[in-house]
């Protein structure tokens, strides 16, 4: 007797979404599957895409991460180029965090220019994140949407600002990352709201908010798993690719603290902390991962896993 894998027939299928690249670059295509992650016999589908975060703020970076970035973190454009050319990032997540008053106070015009410069420097797809300040983002997203010379994804639209972000994306042909705070219902709700204003479903990625390892990762794990199960079971609003930011892993004391010798070398521990967060997100069903450590971009790249 042979042991047959109990293949589960799901009525739904995750919508395939393309993040466009510049001419000569490789677009990122995610979604399209009708199976749970890591299942041995699932249909061939798109591998997990691993991108890297490029920050613009003045915030401190943990030493173990700074070593790995080799000092390039001060210049977003050259960092983005290194992410693509040297470290193999499939896409760039450009965080315009520097526009936040606590993090550099760059003007909206400077933010938009940075976005344009990074888009010119790399060929891979780019997701542009706001600075997190409601009022500034309200100006920043339309400015970025207008300045971007090619289609990007704007991150993120939430219950409060979806009209603005969705409207900017619609006006200039961009995509939208829909954000909700670790809650499957709110994840569906923001997608319904975006659909109400006419954002096409194939231009939406779901960001369920990723807690770092040891700090809420388990909630994200189950929410991503449930989003995927709901989508495969036929809930079209949730049958969409999921993006997980691993950046929160670096906020954990255990990832960066060098004062505890019994925890081992922080240069090993820091990237491992982010990597473990990534594997858990991948096991839960994430389609896109955004990491900060160059080594993890290579490690997490999904080809052999699904």
């Amino acid at each position: 007797m042979t042991v047959a894998f109990p293949k589960q027939a799901f009525p739904g299928r995750v919508l395939e979404v393309t993040l466009p690249a510049a001419e000569g670059g490789t677009p990122v295509i995610v979604g399209g599957q009708n199976a749970l992650p890591l299942a041995p016999e699932g249909e061939k589908h798109n591998p997990v895409a691993v991108g890297m975060e490029v920050g613009t703020g003045s915030g401190e970076i943990p030493p173990s991460l700074a070593h790995a970035l080799g000092g390039r973190e001060k210049d977003p454009v050259s960092l983005a180029r290194a992410c693509e050319d040297e470290w193999g990032a499939s896409f760039i997540f450009l965080s315009l965090s520097g526009c936040h008053p606590d993090n550099g106070s760059q003007t909206v015009a400077m933010g938009a220019k940075l976005a344009r410069d990074v888009l010119a420097a790399v060929r891979c797809p780019v997701i542009v994140g706001g600075c997190g300040d409601e009022e500034i983002d309200a100006k920043l997203f339309p400015a970025v949407a207008e300045a971007a010379p090619r289609p990007v994804f704007l991150s993120y639209a939430d219950e409060k600002n979806y009209r603005l972000v969705g409207g900017a994306a619609l006006a200039y042909g961009h995509g939208v990352v829909s954000w909700s705070p670790i809650d499957i219902n709110m994840a569906k709700q923001i997608n319904l709201l975006l659909s109400d204003i006419g954002v096409p479903p194939e231009r939406i990625l779901i960001d369920p908010l990723t807690g770092g390892l040891g700090y809420g990762l388990e909630y994200t794990y189950s929410i991503v798993e449930r989003i995927r199960l709901a989508g495969l079971s036929g809930d079209a609003m949730l049958a969409r690719p999921v993006l997980c930011h691993l950046g929160d892993a670096w906020k954990a004391r255990e990832a960066v603290d060098a004062s505890e010798p019994s925890w081992g070398d922080p240069d090993v521990r820091g990237p491992r902390w982010e990597e473990a967060t990534g594997w858990a997100c991948l096991a839960a069903g994430a389609d896109l991962l955004v990491c900060r450590h160059p080594g993890n971009a290579a490690l997490l790249r999904g080809t052999s896993w699904r």
């Binding site: 390892l213 521990r269 491992r272 858990a280």
Partner: peptide, 13 residues
């Protein structure tokens, strides 16, 4: 420990 602390934390989560 730099490898086991993340694995054990993941398990705890």
């Amino acid at each position: 420990p730099a490898e086991l602390l993340p694995i054990l934390t993941l398990r705890q989560n």
